[in-house]
Amino acid sequence: MRAGSALRAITNSASPSPLVWLALFVALSIGVTLADSQRLLDVPRDLVMRLLAPVQSGVNRVGNTLRGVTSGWNEVGQLREENAALRRTVEELLQETVNLRAAELENRELRDQLRYARANPSRTLVPAEVIGLDSSALLGYAVINRGAEAGLQAGMTVQTTGGLIGRVVSNTATTSRILLANHPSSAVNARIQNNPGATGQVLGQPDGRLVMRYIPQAELVKVNDVVVTSGLGGAFPANVPIGRVAHVEVRDVELFQRAVIEPFVNFDKLRQVIVDTGFVPPRL
């Protein structure tokens, strides 16, 4: 009866009160939310996104170009420092490459001896471009220009050549939504690369940093230790690099220690990413 009266008030009155208008639009919004939760809007939304994705991509490119032009002026000094740092990194990496080659040979011999089937290294990787971040900055999503048509599914891992970015949480035919690893609602099971016992959970922070929590007190964690995914829980494949330990917080009164992680990926400058379509987390 009340709904009927409200409807009559809207249709009969030439200028209904603002509260009636408010009730009408609140009801419309809730109706849209309910229709979305019943997945009734998936098809039209998919169609609209199909049309909008190129526009969004174009606008994003214009922004990136503009940013490149303006930031170039300010970056000369920074580039000098970066250049020196990169030279040092190259030297370190050369040494690391030599060590890794030796380790790889040893690894091969051990695998042969134990007659383990070599784990299939053929990962199916799909390159994609970040075409937008969520419009409100509250959800922590990025949108990429590949979707179900390229074989992407919810749960797949997204990374760059540098390290982990996050995972696909939903997709349309041509776009996918990525939950970034540095968002507060993201949690990734991780471990210290050189200390398999030092496991924990890497959680995003509201300021965009990463923090590794629940590391057992007994485990030694040092600054500059590399943090990788542990593969525990099955949500992410193991050994995807996440970042380096920047700071360790140990308090005697607490059960666990915690570490601030400096991610390998700059989440503010995401452009090209890779989606591992060969890894789909098992549904528990």
Partner: peptide, 20 residues
């Protein structure tokens, strides 16, 4: 609705917040 579309968040959420 446009914000919901671009953010790919729950549809109708930004619309309801913005109406209020």
């Amino acid at each position: 609705l446009l914000l919901d579309l671009f953010s790919q968040g729950p549809f109708g959420t930004a619309a309801l917040a913005l109406v209020i």
